[in-house]
Design a binder for these strands. Structure first.
Lengths: 191, 191
DNA sequence: CGCCTCAAGCTAAGACCATTAGCTTTAAAG
DNA sequence: CTTTAAAGCTAATGGTCTTAGCTTGAGGCG
């Protein structure tokens, strides 16, 4: 290994993500990460460019995890069931990690090929699920945006406590999903 | 008036909102506000509790403005047209002020009656628009959440540049709106 | 007209934080 | 055993929020 065999970039991101999950994205600070790593703050710069770079790595991790979660949810399903599974998975992920919402709304940023690739991977999963609906390319783009908007909007609002009391939020989501599925079916028939 | 007849809380919020609109919510700093106000940073504490308090005032302002915008958009319309008008207004507001997205996703926070009242006012507008659909109370709650999720999700993703190229984003939004209207109509008929 | 009050401003200071520069150590390679 | 380079360190700078306590000036009151 390396001297003192301590940190790695991965470990730093792990610790940072823990802080984000516990206290929110705004609470992330290099000083806190350094504390948890039993390391002086400047030492982190050996593993991470700076705070912005760490944030980017977190975004990347989150987007990749979401892509995985959606892929897993979609496998073995098709059509309406697959769309609902995607929506459920998106919401479930943000329920487990409410403070990661913003990481999923970041702009792709042309120059950052790695992050761009990751966000593209998410879109690819949705695209694949949409295949049996028989959309042309442009229609598929519209449909993907609708699915993403609905899922991200609902899950994001729920994650930030945006819904007053959480009594029948599940029910609300069922309604949203059925609207989505009906809408997609209808859009496939008569665009 | 008061000595030096300079600032007011309103003026501080105005300046702060300008900074948010220009550079994003994370870029808001008391030091920058003080600069623009030609005042030393500690002087701001005469008009604002602290940075968190200023952020809260910004959120309040944004939510109130959104409620106004939605109310204006809904007046004189009914049913499907009114729902589409709400969605358009929501999106238009976030297009004009992309960096205000998060202010519209904040939790009501029981203790803060003023902010709670403001967010409640937004919901009231949607509720009123939903009246002619004939939903019972629970259904109206679900429907309101769906509308909010769709509008906020789409507008928020668009505002943060979440959609790759902005070619036919208008078209995508048309699709989303028609899904929403169809979904609501359908939900009203057979819940 | 002159004085008093008190809100609005100020400076000074402390506690964090990010970041850079440059040094020290230590694990691994030869 | 020696070398080397990565991983850690301390010191220092500049920025931030925030509190404490002082100064000043505009408006009210005699």
């Amino acid at each position: 290994m390396s001297p003192r065999a301590g940190l790695t970039t991965e470990a730093v991101v792990d610790l940072a993500l823990k802080i984000v999950d516990e206290a929110g994205a705004e609470a992330l600070t290099l000083a806190k990460v350094a504390d948890r790593a039993n390391v002086a703050a400047p030492s982190l710069y050996k593993h991470v460019k700076n705070l912005a770079g760490l944030r980017r790595l977190i975004d990347l991790r989150v987007v990749q995890e979401m892509a995985d979660a959606l892929r897993t949810a979609a496998t073995g399903r098709e059509g309406a069931g697959a769309v609902e599974a995607l929506a459920d998975a998106y919401r479930a992920y943000l329920r487990r990690h409410p403070h990661r919402t913003n990481a999923l709304a970041t702009a792709p940023d042309e120059a950052d090929t790695e992050l761009s690739r990751a966000t593209h991977a998410v879109a690819e999963v949705v695209f694949a699920v949409l295949r049996p609906f028989g959309f042309d390319h442009v229609q598929a783009v519209h449909a993907t945006r609708c699915i993403r908007a609905a899922a991200h909007g609902f899950a994001g609002l729920e994650a930030s406590g945006g819904f007053g009391r959480p009594e029948d939020v599940d029910q609300s989501f069922e309604v949203l999903k059925s609207m989505l599925v009906q809408g997609l079916t209808n859009y496939a028939e008569k665009p």
